[in-house]
Amino acid sequence: MADAEEESDERLMVRVREQDHQAFAMLVRRHTDRFYATAFRMCGQQEEAEDIVQEAFLKLWDRPESWDASKGAKFTTWFYRVVTNQALDRLRKRKNSYGTEVVERLVDPSKDQQREMEDSQEQKYIEAAIQALPERQKAALNLCFYEGLSNKEAAEALGVGIKALESLLMRAKAGLRDELTRRGLIRRKEDYG
């Protein structure tokens, strides 16, 4: 069993291509949480994030040949691309992508009420600022900053060159800095020293 647990994603994908459902189940159990987090960060809604991940995995099961091992891409990098593209499609269909759900979920009941309110407000502003970014900038930020992908992997996942990815990241951070400075969460340059 331990050997099966350690089997690489790419090896499991070879078995999925042979319609091995056990291998598919292992992939799903191994990666659902990670890709759910990716989808959730993109769309900000639990149900929609679940739908995105489910749809992506079921497509993988129906058409495993869409992952081409010969291209040498890691399974996770390729699947980030699948999930991110699905999330981007949904965001384009639904322009108003941010609800109150995230804010309500963030509250930690163990903290005192004042601190809780401050944190909640701060996180609300951060989340709102990220969700308000243009879709591709948001995707670049999520993949690099929150998913921990290298610039090369994130560029592959988004289907852009590394320079384009760096530009997306730079614009995302500039936009966030402006918005969070306006909200008073980041000090203005003139406030230093």
């Binding site: 189940a25 799903v28 159990r29 659902t32 949480d33 679940e50 991940v53 489910q54 079921l58």
Partner: peptide
């Protein structure tokens, strides 16, 4: 979620 996806497949 993982079990739901596996059942759906």
């Amino acid at each position: 979620l993982a079990e739901k996806i596996i059942a759906a497949s």
